[in-house]
């Protein structure tokens, strides 16, 4: 029996070509693959090639293969050790602070209260604002002479010649703390600004994770008599651990590879107090013109981050509970 309206043939088949998943799937993946190859793969290969050659800003031909010379030369420099130490310090301390603060904030934001939308907006703001602008505002806040933070501390008699109850002020008798001028304080300032900037991302990730915990489970914990801390540490955090791992991973990669905060705030200074590998790589490779050595410095981060990534992803998969 003929079915009216049903037609076959090559031309008709062509019209339904995109209905085939075997064809449509790869076709739709293609843009992503091109994007990654062009913007991640190609620069990476180029950086590796640079690091094994002697290219400079003046001579970009890749015909001189020098092996691991660039690496061994860099490792011997004292600035390298300082930058590596600073990078690790920067990553670890800021991540610890971010996770503790983000968990706290997410916990608060998962409750219902008046003005929640406003608080949510304010918290997301540092992430939405361009980092250069944010850092410039901080540059002014941390100014060695006119810092408003110092002003407030002076008004509170915590800083400056006039202390409380006839004693010296707790933070010293100088009129200014000089946030960006002292060794430890400068690093602390850099970390503080970076935490301020990255906190929204982690908070939003953890907030989303907290909302995935079924209400029944939290009610059960309440019936079981678990208080706030027991619920937090024995129920909530274990349940969001896989996602928290991802948040930490994102944070670490964004911190280890970030040069915007350090560059805008201190340029790695004073001396090498806040120099991290990305800024140092930039100074050597771009400003100093030694592309090969700059590339080598930047590549030091690669194995470090690779190990961290593998560890975190494995942890996330292992603690996957459902």
């Amino acid at each position: 029996m003929r079915v009216p309206g049903l037609r076959g043939g090559v031309r008709v088949q062509l019209r339904y070509l995109l209905d085939r998943e075997g064809l449509l799937g790869p076709l739709m993946l293609l843009p992503a693959i091109i994007y990654i190859l062009a913007l991640v793969g190609f620069p990476l290969v180029l950086a590796i090639a640079y690091s094994l050659s002697d290219v400079t800003a003046g001579d970009t031909s890749l015909d001189n293969f020098v092996g691991l010379d660039n690496f061994s030369r860099i490792i011997k420099r004292p600035e390298f050790r300082r930058a590596l130490q600073n990078t690790i310090l920067f990553v670890v301390v800021s991540q610890v602070l971010i996770i503790v603060l983000a968990t706290t904030l997410a916990q608060i934001l998962s409750q219902d209260f008046r003005g929640k939308a406003v608080v949510r907006f304010l918290i997301i703001l540092p992430w939405a604002a361009p980092i250069a602008l944010g850092t410039i505002a901080w540059l002014w806040l941390l100014d060695s002479e006119f810092s408003p933070i110092d002003l407030i501390l002076r008004e509170l008699h915590l800083l400056g010649p006039a202390g409380l109850l006839g004693r010296d002020a707790i933070l010293g008798t100088d009129t200014n703390l000089v946030w960006l001028g002292r060794e430890r304080l400068t690093m602390a300032s850099v970390i503080m600004v970076h935490v301020w900037r990255l906190l929204p991302l982690s908070t939003v990730i953890l907030l989303a994770a907290l909302t995935t915990i079924p209400r029944d489970v939290l009610d059960q914990a309440e019936v079981d008599g678990a208080g706030f801390w027991r619920t937090l540490f024995q129920i909530k955090i274990p349940l969001i651990l896989p996602i928290m791992g991802i948040a930490i991973l994102f944070g670490m990669i964004l911190t280890a590879g970030d040069m915007a905060v350090v560059y805008n705030l201190t340029r790695g200074g004073p001396v090498y107090y806040t120099q991290v590998l990305p800024t140092w790589s930039f100074f050597i490779g771009i400003e100093g013109g030694s592309l090969a050595q700059g590339a080598a410095v930047a590549l030091f981060l690669l194995p470090l981050l690779l190990v961290v990534t593998i560890l975190v992803l494995r942890l996330a998969r292992r603690s996957e509970v459902t």
Partner: peptide, 14 residues
Amino acid sequence: KIAMVFQSYALYPH
């Protein structure tokens, strides 16, 4: 002094 069983049983999955 009550105990409750939820529809989903609400066992702690971890």
